[in-house]
Each structure stands twice: as C-alpha cells, then as structure tokens.
Design a binder for these strands. Structure first.
Length: 875
RNA sequence: GGGAUUAUAGCUCAGUUGGUUUAGAGCACCUGCCUUACAAGCAGGGGGUCGUAGGUUCGAAUCCUACUAAUCCCA
C-alpha cells in the first residue's frame, strides 16, 4: 500500500475547504420546514489578526454549527468585523504620517476616504485566517459595522433613545488620550506600574509663617489646585482647620477643607485637591463646592489658566516645575515611588483624567429587562457562575459614555443651531425642519447647522449586531430577521461580558422586545503555560497560522478543546496541538488498516460477530453520552468521549478483535460492518476534526461531490444493549489480566498461554471465548473445578483464574500480591459494614442505597473467600 | 477598601439534587516491547489523608462557618 504511515493535513485541508465553499454547504437561507440554528460571530476588530483567543472561540462556534448542520437544522453562522474606531483611526493616522500627511491638514471627508481605502486594503485579514481554521461561516452574509445599513441602524437607535430621554450631554471626568485626542472607555485603559517620584511640596499657611507639606506625583498640576484637604480625624492638623493655604509660584490662596477620603497614613496626610485633573479630587470638589480649574489642553500641554509654563507639555512641565519649586525653596524632598498609571490601549499615551462634554446613555431603566431575563434563566450564561458577576454589574450599572473624539465611526446626529441649542435627528434635513419649528425662524438654512464633531463608541454599533446583521432595523419584517432572530448561542470571552454581552441583551429588549440569543457560552482566556495572558509585548503568543501549518487545523482545534472546560482559562502549550495531531494520525492509521484488507465471501469469525454486537452497543452509548455533554455545553467532555471511543474502543478493542491474521483476507460482512462503524465514528468526529473526517469519508467509499460528511446525518440517540457492555467489561478485564500476567513475568506477547477458569457460571466466558482467546493470545481456555498447581492466579469478581507457568513461581511474591488485594477488599468490606451495622443508616437511607450496599457486601465477601482460597492453595 | 470565583494525582480538569467512589479521565511519569495500521505506536504499572481547622448528618470531595492562597471585577 502506498499510503503514508503519517497523516499529512496540509495536503488536504485547502482542498476540502474549497470544495465545501463550491458546494455552498455553509450557505443558509430560511427554510420553514427546518429548525433554525443561528450563531453570530463576535465581530473581531477589522484591524486585528488572529490570536489564540479567536482560535478557541471560533473553534467552539464551528463545532456547534457543524453539529447543528448535520442534525438537519438550518445552520447559519454570520461572520463579520467591527470598525474599531480608535484602533483603525490610529492605523490610518500613522499611515498618513508616513506619507507626510497630518490629520489636521485634511478635511473630515478626505480622511474618511483614506480610512475606507485602508479598510478595503488591509481590513478583514482575520476573516481569511478563520478559513484556515475551517470556520464554516456563511460568507455571503459577511457584515461590517460601518457599512451603510449597519450605520443607519446606529443612527436610528441613537435618535430613538434620545427621544425616549435616555441620551444626554454632560460634563464628566473621562479618560483622555492626549495623543489620540479622544476620550476612552474604562476598558480601553491599561494600568501599568510606572516608576515615578513623589514630590513633597510645602504650601505657606495664609497669614502665618508656618507651612504645610503635601505629597504628589503630579507637581505640574498645583496651579489647578482648588483646596488642601485633611482628614477631620487627624489631630496632627487641628491647627489647620478653617485656615487657607497659598499655592507656591502663583501665590494663590485656597481653602483647607476636611474630608474622610484622605488617607492619614499615606504621604504627609495633607492632600492637594485638583478637581479638574483627578477623579477622586473631582468628587471631593463636588462635596465641598470647589472650582474645577482645567489647566491642560487636549494635546497635553498647559494652557493659560496655568499662568506659568503655558504651552509646555505636561511631562516637560513636571520636570521644570520641580526645578522652580526647588529654587523657590518649596520643594521639601523627592522620593522614588511606583504607581499604577493608566495608558491608552491604542496609543500607549498616559491617560489624562479630564473634564469634558460627552454624550451619555442613562442606563438605570434600560438595564431592567436585561437583568431580569438573565436572572430567570430565560437567557442562560454558561457556566452559570457568571450570573453572579452579571448581577453585580447590572445592579451597579453606570451611565455609558458613547462619544469619541474621532472621525472614523458614525458621526453623532446632533446639529447645533447658531443660538447654541441643538437638535437630534437622523438627517440634517430633518434637523433643519425641526430647528425651524423649534425656533420659529424659517430663514434657517442647512449651512447654519453644525453637526457634532464626535463619533459614537464602537460598542454602540456592536450592541446591535445580532439584530443588525439580519437588517432588523432597516426592514424588521424581512424573512431573515423573522427566521433567524433570536439567535441560539453566543460564544465569547468573559472579559467582554459587560461591554458587549450585557449591552446586546439590553439592546435586544429595548429595540425588539426580544432576547438576542438563548445561551451565552463564555470561554476561558488562553494563557501561556505559566498562566500569563498572551500578549504581544511578552511575545508568548504562538502564531496561530504557524500552528495550523505544523499540526493541521484539526490538530490545533482538537488540542485547544481537549482541556478547555467552559469558563476555565486554558494554559496553552504546543504539546496540546501535538496531541491533537497524534489523534488524527491514529485515525489515519486505522483507516490504512481497514483500507488494506482484501475482502472475500466467507463466514465472519465468532470473535468478529461478538465484537460487532459489542461495538454497536458501545457506539450508541457514546452517542448518548456526547448528546448529554453537548446539551450542557461540555464541549471538551464530548470531545474526550469520542476520543476514547475511537482510540480505546474502536482501535484497541474492536479493530483488534476483527482483524484477520496478517495476509489473510476478511469476510465481506465484517468488512462492510466495519466500514459502517468507521463512517459513524467519522460523523461524531466531524464537528471537531472537519478536514480529516471529510478526507476519510471520501476515501472509505466511492462518493460523489455532494455526498460529504459535513452534511451527513448525525447519529441519533437510540437505546442500546447494556448487558453486552457489562459482560464485555469483564471479558476485557480478563484480557488485561492475562496481558498483565505475561508482562509481569517478562514473557513476550507472542508467547501463547493456557488459561483455566474456576467459576460457577461459565456462560460469559463461553460467549466471549473467541475474543478472549484472540486478544489474550491463549493456547487454550478450559474450565476447572480445582485449583491448578504451578500457576499464576488472579481473581475477578468471585471467579478464579489460573495460568500455568513453566519453571519456578515466586510463591512469596504471588502471596504478597494476593494479600494486598485481600487487604484492600477487607478494608472496603469494612467500610460497607460500618454503614450496614449502623441502625440509623438502615432506618434512614433510601431502599435503593441500602440494596446497593448489600450487593457491595455480597460481592466483597465472595471475593474475599476466593482470595483466601487462593492464598491457602499457595501454601 | 467592596464584591465574586476557585482550591481534587506532577499538569489540566471530571466528580450532576450528600449515598454505585477507602475518589475518575487525558497528558506527563515508570517498566517491557521496533508484535507487518500506527514507536507521534502497543501492552502493563505507580501516583491523591479531595487547601487548613471546625461543624451539620446514620453518611461529606459534595452542605455550613472560620482561616489561608490564587484569580477576576469594581473603586
């Protein structure tokens, strides 16, 4: 045979993906005769490249969708990307910079043209990468959050929420990125440990020659100080109460206030309060009615309100002011200090807390149905431990800042009138009409309206995703939306449970009165072997495409799923992919064996017939087990079930039992049944290992282009013969014991052995005699009523087995082994008897439990007797 | 500081409402085999007082309390 002993995935993967695409197997359209099964992809960032998290997440989605497809459901997996305003804008700005173009020198329209060009050229690489993984998305349905219809939905919902009073403008402290010149959401801020200095600065107490000392990491903000704050319980500062202090360098007088917020242990116990530049200070400011003095420009330089160092960058200013304070004699000391400083996820600039006018969504009311429907399990979170986390967030929900000071995104549909008022409307024309009504000024023209410069947060697009991908806003009655929505399962990471999942649920109920999905499967986070998050800066993330190249997509998928229970982080090692590949190779070689057989018309062997009966039952049992695992979203358990079914049951037991001696042909009946079993196994395996199974499906039989395992009918749960499984278990244990005996005596597996059985019930052994003979490699199998001399013996249940050994038997060693088992069984019996001797147990425990304990007792007693006999026989 | 989650074999995890369990799986490990499908394999084997200390119960890995440790979210 010319087939390689090694399975080579790269030869077949692209071929089959292309074939599936050509046959339109991924495509879905509404079919009223079929049950829909829908997944929308968590849209990856359009600038992104595939990382391990995507691999895990999309593998799970693909497993679910492929299984549903084979089960005859109308399976639809919608792919797409989001426009990632900050990330994309940063990329475009950088590209323009390389071309010598500055964003501020071009118009908004020109910039958007460049951005779209960038998107067309570089965006969406990640979707191409998903194809390598085998993702069976309906690619004809690919969506992008900035395309026209999707944007229209965003604008429509903004106006809708505004009209309902859920959207407002307000000044709030935001995370300001002075480089990107935009506000960032909390999750876009990364906190890093930074070495800095703690400056101890003394302020004169007004009207005295005394000083107080504060400690700060940001001396450049002293000009924005509105007060000095002390803890009211701090007796050290009683003399300061009611006094005022003077800011050095600018000689401004500020009050000294008292607030519990001040940590008496930290620094000097005196806190400078800078409401415009620190979130905690802002809140103290609100409590004490302090003025917020903003001395920093949008680009991070100091403005004229600072009075000194105007125009200097905040970090330059920090150094210079240190020097100035020193010269003025106000710098007491500098000490080294490490602090957690927020950085922009995109530009890496140090975040500046900044007061700024932003658009907000009022969340308190909106959240209510979304909260309820998860708490009552109408929407299920998997694993359920996330329900708690979800509840906690929903109960403490805060308003959502949805404006971003960027151009790439949907521009906020608010139009300012010359008098400073504004109108929210879907179009400028509509706004003009409304403006005329509002002002009574019929001379207003479009040119008089100025649209808000800001765009909406990307999440404000993503939260509509399950509805907008089916045009649920543009055309709510359309067939797709009616058929596919609500979707079935959502697969995503717990890190965006609030930013995305919760908001989708909110949007689903608010805009359509329906949940967006039934189940949310939260995957773990893929970490490296040391448990660290994978990150570019650590360089600990393997290249997914490289992994696929080396281990095959099937190998990587299997490797990822093998040890990733829902919600558990996955400590990734390349070894896992090797294990996945090994599994594929095992199946490949099973195929080589079967394919190599010569088939003749003959009677099946007794062993083969028994093996068939057993494997049929075992297969059905595995189908039932897998079905149960899938129903609970235990994907890795389902995989493990089929892994063992293939490796242990099909390869190690079944194929070994039916395999003819080398060179001999196989009878037709056994051959055909075996092919049938193989196909059944491939079906169970296909959602996990799509490529290998498709290849073997076509190699096993002569099939046309439409007859593919991807659309084969998935095995259904059926009743099975449990008795044959129970009997086989004992027969297999006997075979293991025979092999063990051979192995522990250092005999070759080729050495044939004689077996004597002492039992009161011969039927099981007769039934399985042929298999026991073959797999145990026996010369003979006989029944006996007496002990057999010069033999190794062992006990299964209450039956005793003897294998005569030529030459000396180490009696002491045999005795020791039997004694060990006897001790264990006695201990076990003892624990059973403790229960049965306890009156209260017999009274209180359920009948079934007591019965089980009595059975355990009887079995153990019989076994002990047999073991004791064995021991006695040995002398 | 507030809240949550987790703790079972060397590693990653099962163990479903307490009773088929003096605890299972995969990987890793050890021993023997290049046995004509597969050495990336085959056969066999060892390994855990279920984080610690109490409590409830006839019975606890499972329920309760405290402690310890780790992780996450919020401030």
């Amino acid at each position: 045979m010319s087939l390689s002993t090694k399975y080579n995935p790269s030869e077949i993967e692209d071929k089959w993906y292309q074939h599936w695409m050509e046959q339109k197997f991924f495509a879905s359209k509404p079919d009223p005769n079929k049950e829909p099964y829908t997944i929308v992809i968590p849209p990856p960032n359009v600038t992104g490249v595939l990382h391990m998290g995507h691999m895990l997440n999309n593998t799970i989605q693909d497993v679910l969708i492929r299984r549903a497809r084979m089960q005859g459901k109308e399976a639809c997996w919608v792919p797409g990307t989001d426009h990632a305003s900050i990330a994309t804008e940063a990329k475009v700005v950088n590209l323009l910079k390389e071309k010598g173009i500055s964003k501020k020198d071009i118009t908004r329209d020109e910039f958007m043209k460049h951005a779209w060009e960038w998107k067309e050229k570089y965006g969406g690489i990640i979707l191409e990468q998903l194809k390598k993984l085998g993702a069976s998305c309906d690619w004809d349905r690919e969506r992008f959050t900035m395309e026209e219809d999707m944007s229209a939905a965003v604008i429509e919902t903004f106006v809708d929420l505004y009209k309902k009073g859920y959207i407002y403008r307000g000044i709030r402290m935001v995370n300001w990125d002075p480089e990107g010149k935009t506000a960032l959401a909390d999750d876009e801020v990364i906190f890093k440990e930074v070495n800095s200095k703690l400056y101890h600065i003394r302020y004169q107490i007004e009207g005295t020659e005394d000083y107080l000392t504060i400690a700060t990491t940001r001396p450049e903000t002293i000009m924005a100080d509105a007060a000095i704050c002390i803890n009211p319980n701090d007796t050290r500062f009683d003399h300061l109460k009611g006094k005022r202090a003077i800011i050095p360098l600018i000689n401004k007088s500020i009050p000294i206030v008292e607030d519990d917020y001040v940590d008496m242990e930290f620094g000097t116990g005196c806190l400078k309060v800078t409401p415009a530049h620190d979130i905690n200070d802002y809140e103290i400011g609100l409590r004490h009615n302090l003025e917020a003095i903003d001395i920093i420009n949008d680009n991070g330089t100091l403005n004229e309100k600072a009075q000194i160092l105007v125009g200097e960058d905040r970090f330059v200013a920090r150094k210079k002011i240190g020097k100035l304070l020193k010269e003025a004699g106000n710098l007491v000391k500098e000490e080294d200090y490490t602090s957690n400083v927020g950085h922009s996820e995109r530009t890496n600039a140090v975040i500046e807390p900044k007061l700024s006018m932003q658009w907000w969504v009022k969340m308190e009311e909106l959240v209510k149905p979304a909260y309820e429907e998860v708490m009552n399990d109408n929407i299920q979170l998997i694993p359920p431990k996330f329900k708690n986390t979800y509840r906690h967030w929903m109960e403490n929900v805060r308003d959502w800042c949805i404006s971003r000071q960027l151009w790439w995104g949907q521009r906020i549909p608010a139009y300012y009138l010359p008098n400073g008022e504004y109108i929210v409307a879907e179009t400028a024309e509509e706004a003009l009409t409304l403006a005329k009504e509002k002002t009574g000024d019929n001379n207003l023209k479009l040119e008089d309206l100025r649209q808000d410069e800001d765009v909406l947060d990307t999440w404000f697009s993503s939260w509509l995703w399950p509805m907008s991908v089916f045009d649920g806003f543009k055309d709510p009655d359309n067939e797709d939306f009616q058929y596919y929505y609500p979707t079935n399962d959502l697969v995503t990471g717990p890190d965006i449970l609030f930013f995305w999942v919760a908001r989708m649920i909110i949007a689903g109920f608010e805009f359509k009165g329906q949940k967006p999905f039934n189940n949310v499967y939260l995957t773990g986070i893929v970490r490296d072997a040391q448990g660290r998050k994978m990150s570019k800066s650590l360089g600990n993330s393997p290249d997914p495409l490289e992994l696929i190249k080396n281990h095959g997509a099937d190998g990587v998928r299997t490797g990822l799923l093998l040890s990733s229970a829902a919600g558990n982080d996955l400590l990734f090692e390349t070894k896992l992919c090797e294990q996945g590949w090994n599994f594929g190779n095992k199946i490949w070689n099973a195929f080589r064996l079967v394919k190599g057989w010569e088939v003749v018309n003959a009677e099946p062997s007794v062993a083969a017939k028994k093996a068939q009966e057993w494997f049929e039952a075992r297969f059905k049992q595995a189908v039932a087990e897998m079905d149960d695992h899938f129903s609970k979203f235990r994907i890795s358990d389902a995989l493990m079930t089929v892994y063992k079914l293939v490796w242990d049951d099909f390869c190690s037991w079944y194929l070994e039992a039916v395999k003819p001696p080398y060179g001999d042909p196989i009878d037709r009946e056994t051959y055909e049944l075996t092919i049938g079993f193989f196909e059944d196994v491939l079906k169970l395996l296909h959602p996990f290992m799509p490529f290998l199974t498709e290849e073997l499906w076509h190699q096993l039989g002569d099939r046309d282009e439409k007859d593919c395992v991807i659309v084969a009918q998935y095995p259904e749960v059926k009743a099975y013969d449990n008795e044959v499984l129970e009997k086989a278990k004992i027969a297999f244990e006997l075979i293991s014991q025979i092999r063990n005996t051979r192995s522990s005596k250092g005999l070759s597996p080729k050495e044939q052995l004689k077996l004597f059985i002492k039992t009161s019930d011969k039927s099981l052994y007769k039934e399985f005699a042929s298999i026991i003979n073959k797999l145990g490699n026996l010369e003979s199998m006989e029944f006996t009523t007496d002990k057999v001399d010069n033999a190794i013996s062992f006990v299964i249940k209450s039956d005793e087995f003897f294998i005569p050994m030529e030459g000396a038997i180490d009696v002491e060693k045999e005795k020791a082994e039997i004694q060990k088992e006897l001790d264990y069984t006695k201990g076990f019996l003892n624990s059973v008897m403790k229960k049965l001797d306890n009156e209260r147990f017999v009274q209180n425990a359920p009948e079934k439990v007591i019965e089980m304990e009595r059975k355990k007792q009887a079995d153990a007693e019989a076994k002990i007797k047999t073991l004791e006999d064995s021991l006695a026989n040995l002398g």
